[in-house]
């Protein structure tokens, strides 16, 4: 049972990570910096609860803000470049952040132990949940509550004019410019929202694993972050959730019995999935036909 609870936690946190990339991808930017924002969130939240003894919620709030500001600051210079150049720029930033935490030591004495992030050894003893009597189930509920809140907010954003404007920028920047949209502002804003979401996700991640270190936030995690929304499709937030369940639940855990063959199949299945559904699991056409099936005969409302 614990295994499934653990898996559900992983899926929840990775969904947050995927949604942070989803938001950025809507504006047509491929960012490999999401893992870095996730890392910033993780370290900030953990330092606040472990060293400064803050309440978890306050720590998560601050980690969201700090990650968001970081993303905003990265957004301005990075967004002057496009396409592959942006990928390289954000990749470089991600590595810089990882190496920062590789060298980052900030410890205090607590009784016998020294606690706090300790360079390459990482940050151990993030024991907020056990110290405050949260059971695994409580933690799970909390993670999915946050996922639900973030998904609801993004869903609402998607239906609004702001969401349409973000998608318009992703479709065609020149046309968006010429339609009076401030493309730079929209892109930086999307990056900031993505940073906030990644910050929340990272903060939660640090507390349920109880131990974080720089290697966890490398290129692999950044790649997963953008793989989820791309594989899931950008028509709505549930695509990302589906993709996380598919990758984490099925490809990684479900195929574990295959041993080494799993890694081979892993890549092959992703390629297959992208060939069958080039715009992702849930694309606009798929959603439209789904709607027709569910609400046959009913005229859907405007906007």
């Amino acid at each position: 049972m614990d295994f499934y609870l653990g898996l559900a936690q992983v899926i929840g946190v990775h969904t947050l990570l995927g949604l942070s990339a989803y938001c950025v991808l809507l504006t047509g930017q491929v960012s490999l910096a999401q893992a870095a924002f996730f890392a910033v969130g993780a370290y900030v939240a953990a330092i606040l609860t472990v060293i400064f003894k803050w309440h978890l919620f306050a720590a998560l709030g601050v980690s969201a803000v700090v990650s968001g500001l970081t993303a905003c600051a990265v957004g301005f210079p990075a967004l002057r470049v496009k396409g592959l150049m942006l990928v390289v720029a954000t990749l470089a930033f991600g590595e810089a952040v990882r190496l920062f935490f590789f060298n980052f030591t900030y410890q205090i004495q607590a009784g016998e132990l020294k606690i706090g992030p300790h360079g390459a050894e990482g940050f151990r003893q993030i024991r907020y949940f056990p110290e405050h009597g949260w059971s695994t189930f409580d933690v799970l509920m909390f993670i999915w509550l946050m996922v639900a809140i973030v998904m609801a907010c993004l869903w609402w954003l998607d239906q609004s004019r702001a969401g349409a404007v973000m998608r318009a920028v992703g479709e065609d920047e020149v046309a968006a410019h010429s339609s009076g949209i401030n493309v730079t502002a929209v892109k930086v804003l999307a990056m900031t929202i993505g940073g906030v979401i990644a910050g929340i996700g990272g903060g939660i991640f640090a507390h349920y694993t109880t131990h974080i270190e720089h290697v966890q936030f490398g290129v692999i995690l950044a790649t997963f972050a953008i793989a989820y929304p791309i594989l899931g499709g950008l028509s709505n937030v549930f695509g990302t959730l589906l993709a996380v369940i598919f990758i984490q639940g099925f490809l990684i855990e479900g195929l574990r019995f295959l041993g080494d063959w799993r890694n081979l199949l892993f890549g092959a299945l992703i390629v297959l999935a992208m060939n069958l559904r080039p715009r992702g699991f849930l694309d606009a056409g798929g959603v439209a036909s789904l709607k027709r099936m569910l609400f046959a005969g009913k005229e859907s409302s405007g906007a």
Binding site: R161, R167, A168, E171, D172, A175, A176, I181, G302
Partner: peptide, 15 residues
């Protein structure tokens, strides 16, 4: 140069 994956309505809405 339209926003192809947006609906007709949304194309006008964002403008």
């Amino acid at each position: 140069r339209l926003f192809g994956q947006l609906s007709v309505w949304q194309n006008l809405w964002v403008a």
